[in-house]
Nucleic acid binder design. Sequence first.
DNA 1: GCCAACGTTGGC
DNA 2: GCCAACGTTGGC
Length: 151
Amino acid sequence: MYWLMKSEPTTFSILDLKSKPQSRDQWEGVRNYEARNYLKAMKQDELAFFYHSNCTVPGIVGIMKVTRTAWPDRTAFDPSSAYFDPQSISENPRWYCVEVELISSFSKIISLQQLRRLSSLSRMRLLQKGSRLSVMPVREAEWEMILSLAA
DNA sequence: GCCAACGTTGGC
DNA sequence: GCCAACGTTGGC
């Protein structure tokens, strides 16, 4: 499967990921059940687009690889974390994270505006009205189409 | 189980 | 900053 994962660049941008050791980090803080279920469905080495949301030019900025499959998100157990959830207990964790590694950073952002212009992408969950899901699958044909835009 | 109220997301 | 759309909560 292919994926798309959103992050607000003011919180965590593609440059932040790039600056990590081995360009790897934990994708944590997902607090939506559907998004969590997708996180748990991710397999080793699967690829995901990195999407910048809630910013001047929202869009896809690069590609990541899943380097570790889902395990309990410890930020949910940490009262000092912004992602703390008292209802998630370690014996029965509610939230999960994965580890990702940056594979490529696009020289130019593929903007949401640009994506919307392509009728072949109109079925993408990302582009549906009111869609707020932060982790979602991407169809192979859509993945290829978007990759060709990055070239 | 319904649904109003609320908080959040995210484009604009 | 605005606000539509959405998911979650909690009273009943």
